[in-house]
């Protein structure tokens, strides 16, 4: 599948923003975060900026961005519509949680109720995003549970890295706890991502050139002549292909920069010291790593329609 830059940016940026909200709510429930107004202003500004800029960028790939509001109407059947509705509804608890924290210096009591609802709403939104992809039977690499876990895992991981960075910049003692949360989610996300890659490496035999043409019972089906001499929309959008050795190298880069370096930096920060510096390194390394991971998510996925254009299996 063609990796659209706007969608890669949207899913990674908004994912990190929702992940930050997830941990602000959850760790407030654990009474781990002081309701410091300056800290609250910084983290809510970063989270909302990531979410809003991501959502806006997601409209950039539309043919008619001015009609984007129509996408809120079909929540009964469409995961894309549900994502839009969930994203907008999530602003209510996130906003209330932010107002109570920043202006009233509270993250307990009523504020905590908003915080927990905000964390849930953030997860529901990311779940809807993941389901847009996981519900497509036409793309076997996406149509499995590991797609959902990858999206939720990377959202939680990037959010935890950002929160740990903020907490260590403020120099709070709780940085040991946020460091452990960030390290754990990074490790879990890596495991999920590895399982995702091992799942998609097993070929799904459901559809092939034989079932696509219905001629499979007669013998081996091979494309002899393409319908057109230059690439059409389908081939450009669904036929994006990445060389196998490049995919392998990019996976290694994604694993090292997205997971290994952040995990190592967090571990050093937890055991040796220089926690703020290590938290900065973790976030800086994770940014390109997660973007490459998301680029690969699209670039490596194959669509069954390519069975009509010379692919023998997807």
């Amino acid at each position: 599948m063609h990796p659209a830059k706007s969608v890669i940016f949207f899913t990674t940026a908004s994912g990190a923003g929702y992940g930050l909200i997830l941990w602000l709510g959850t760790l407030s429930a654990w009474r781990l975060l002081p309701a410091d107004q300056g800290f609250g202003l910084a983290v809510f500004a970063v989270a909302l900026a990531l979410i809003v800029v991501g959502l806006l960028s997601s409209t950039l790939h539309l043919g008619h961005p001015e009609r984007a509001w129509r996408a809120l109407s079909q929540w009964r059947s469409s995961w894309l519509s549900r994502e839009g509705v969930a994203a907008i509804l999530a602003f209510v608890p996130i906003g209330l949680f932010g107002i109570w924290w920043v202006f009233l210096a509270q993250n307990t009591g009523v504020a905590l109720v908003f915080g927990i609802v905000a964390a849930l709403a953030a997860m529901i939104t990311v779940y809807c995003t993941a389901m847009i992809y996981a519900s497509l039977k036409t793309i076997p690499a996406w149509s499995n549970g590991w797609t959902i876990l990858s999206y939720l895992g990377l959202c939680a991981m990037t959010g935890a890295l950002l929160l740990h960075l903020a907490v260590s910049l403020w120099g709070w003692q709780v940085q040991q706890s946020t460091g452990i949360v960030a390290l754990t989610t990074t490790a879990v996300s890596l495991l999920v991502k590895l399982r995702y890659w091992s799942t998609i490496s097993k070929p799904k035999k459901d559809s092939n050139a034989g079932t696509a043409t219905g001629l499979g019972q007669m013998g081996t089906v091979r494309l002899l002549e393409s319908p057109h001499s230059s690439d059409n929309y389908l081939m450009k959008e669904m036929g994006f292909r990445i060389a196998r050795e490049h995919a392998h190298k990019l996976r290694t880069i994604a694993i090292v920069t997205g997971f290994m370096i952040p995990a190592a930096a967090l571990a050093i920060g937890l055991t040796v010291g220089a926690t703020p510096l290590m938290a900065i390194i973790a976030v800086l390394a994770a940014c390109p790593g997660v973007v490459i991971e998301r680029w690969l998510f699209f670039a490596e996925a194959r669509h069954v329609v390519m069975l009509y254009y010379g692919a023998e299996a997807v």
Binding site: M1, H61, L62, G63, H64, P65, R67, A68, R70, A71, S78, L80, I132, L136, K137, T138, I139, S207, A212, N232, Y233, L234, E237, M238, H303, V304, V305, Y308
Partner: peptide, 27 residues
């Protein structure tokens, strides 16, 4: 008149029945 040109329908179709019109911005 109401298509936003998100292309998701073309992703969902196994048969490649839908082609996006770049000029009109609709499927």
């Amino acid at each position: 008149d109401t298509c936003i040109g998100c292309k998701l329908c073309s992703w969902a179709c196994p048969y490649g029945a839908r082609e996006y019109d770049e000029h009109e911005g609709v499927m």
